[in-house]
Design a protein around this nucleic acid. Structure first.
Lengths: 134, 134
DNA sequence: CGCTATTAGGAGTAATATTCTCACTTATAG
DNA sequence: CTATAAGTGAGAATATTACTCCTAATAGCG
């Protein structure tokens, strides 16, 4: 159906929560889960790639929690989406390790590539401050 | 992962086969399945929405088969994709019957809408003759 | 210092949704 | 009437999403 998965949706929602609460130096995943209505165990897993990609910083222990690793203006929506969902690849033949043997004869590749570039351009042009309306 | 499903990929491949064989007045689904390496029982199902949306014309019985319902220049890639996958809806909040209560406060809707429009524009601008390279 | 409460991280399992396949039914030309 | 090919519904396989329970790190306190 060409759509964002739950992982992407929940992850973005969690990130939005952090952006909207800039005063809190650390917010627990439990808090986010409760406030944004996201299943907690699932949300925990989503933070792993966000931390790995230097979007989120986390600390364990008492008074620990998560926060943005960089300023929200410096993080693009595309970055977050790709961290959560893997690199964009609207069609299999656009994947890095694609073994499609038809590239030279088939126009599909070019069409999907163009569509993907258009989409990525939009997502790359938005930073996290734009997740919330003024 | 934001990608075309197998339904979309197989369906487009089948349609491409019809475009590339304009001389044959009718081609059997079995033929397409064999030539394009698509699981036959699954492919059969994909033709249902294509027929319903007036993209494909089918006849049963001896010497039956499928063919394009209109000239390939008059059918856009977007039409075929939406027939196979349902209307584009990159994010839940873009769906017609969305019950998202955050639209007014959340910038997500606008961002995904913009991304989706960009993508749809590309797919709408391509017709079926462009599925095969010259 | 070392104990304790607290919070992230991770492995493995269960539930659910999606994708795909099989077996059977219906229509049509000859 | 028969052979052929599309059409359909139930069920298997797979991927996604959700949960359980356990481990690791850290701040604060006696």
């Amino acid at each position: 159906m060409i759509r964002l998965t739950k992982a992407g949706e929940y992850g973005l929602r969690a990130v939005r929560y952090l952006v909207e609460n800039p005063d809190a130096s650390r917010i627990s995943i439990g808090d986010i889960s409760e406030n944004k209505n996201i299943p907690e165990p699932f949300l925990r897993k989503l933070f792993k790639p966000l931390v790995k990609n230097n979007i989120i910083h986390s600390t364990r222990g008492v008074a620990g929690g998560v926060r943005l690793a960089r300023k929200p203006e410096e993080i693009s929506v595309l970055e977050v989406v790709e961290a959560l969902e893997g690199p964009l690849a609207l069609n299999d033949c656009l994947m890095d390790d694609s073994e499609c043997e038809f590239i030279s004869e088939c126009g599909m590749h070019d069409i999907w590539d163009e569509a993907q570039v258009a989409m990525a351009k939009v997502l790359r042009s938005k930073n996290l401050t734009e997740l919330s309306k003024p």
